[in-house]
């Protein structure tokens, strides 16, 4: 790799890092919690890190603990993973343009597209002087790194945590709320933002917390498509 490229990559990391600080806090803490939980179920650091590094799907990994502690059923694990993670399908559509023309890097960007990375990369515009591809790669890589690192720490020394971290995982909710407000700054996003909130609340009320994702996505899709028809966009 030539030195110019290295300089470009460093610049991208420096400019991406501040945006990922809330994710750093949240992922380290939740990663530790995950590592500890796996540990208490008899799955040592090797297993929790392997799961985090390969599957990299936060909330689904917590759900998966149940799957690792009951009768062996890989088909159920696969289907549950599809359902809990279904929202990624729409992240993909939303990121089609942003991840356009990224060549081989596209593979990594897609593989690492979690909720938090999507939240940052879909709203934050890379600064003019920073290479776009490296910026998105830096956000994705940093978030991924935090999660795996947190899991590792949790699996190794989790029980020794010395201060009361109860409630610190709220940092991820705070991040999502703030980035949602940032989205709503743009007039053209307000309608779709309200559609998202509204449909998901209805989904939550009807289908309850464990099954809300797919019905809410379908409602969002229907409302957006009907709106398009009405406005003839």
């Amino acid at each position: 790799m030539d030195s110019k490229k290295i300089v470009e990559i460093k610049k991208a990391f420096r400019s991406a890092f501040p945006h990922t600080i809330p994710v750093f806090t949240g992922f380290i803490v939740l990663g530790i919690a995950y590592g500890i939980l796996m540990h208490t179920k008899g799955y040592g650091v090797l297993w929790s890190v392997l799961m985090s590094a390969l599957a990299f799907c936060g909330s689904m990994q917590f759900v998966a603990i149940t799957l690792l502690t009951t009768a062996f059923n890989p088909v159920q694990a696969f289907l549950l993973s599809l359902m809990v993670n279904a929202r990624h399908l729409f992240y993909g559509i939303a990121m089609l343009d942003k991840y356009k023309g990224m060549g081989k890097s596209r593979f990594f960007l897609i593989y690492l597209l979690c909720d938090e990375t999507f939240s940052i990369s879909s709203i934050i515009k890379p600064p003019e002087q920073v290479n776009k591809k490296y910026f998105y790669l830096a956000v994705s890589f940093l978030d991924y790194f935090y999660w795996v690192l947190g899991t590792f720490i949790g699996g190794m020394v989790g029980q020794l945590l010395f201060f009361n971290t109860k409630g610190i995982d709220f940092v991820l909710t705070a991040l999502i709320v703030v980035l949602f407000i940032e989205q709503l700054k743009f007039q053209e996003n307000r309608l779709s933002g309200i559609v998202g909130i509204g449909c998901t609340i209805i989904g939550l009320l009807i289908f309850k917390a464990d099954n809300l994702v797919i019905p809410s996505m379908i409602m969002i899709l229907i409302v957006l498509l009907v709106w398009r028809k009405l406005k003839c966009i």
């Binding site: 729409f90 992240y91 939303a94 980035l179 709503l184 779709s192 509204g198 996505m217």
Partner: peptide
Amino acid sequence: LPASMMGL
């Protein structure tokens, strides 16, 4: 979709 999914 970005704003809708953030709402979700």
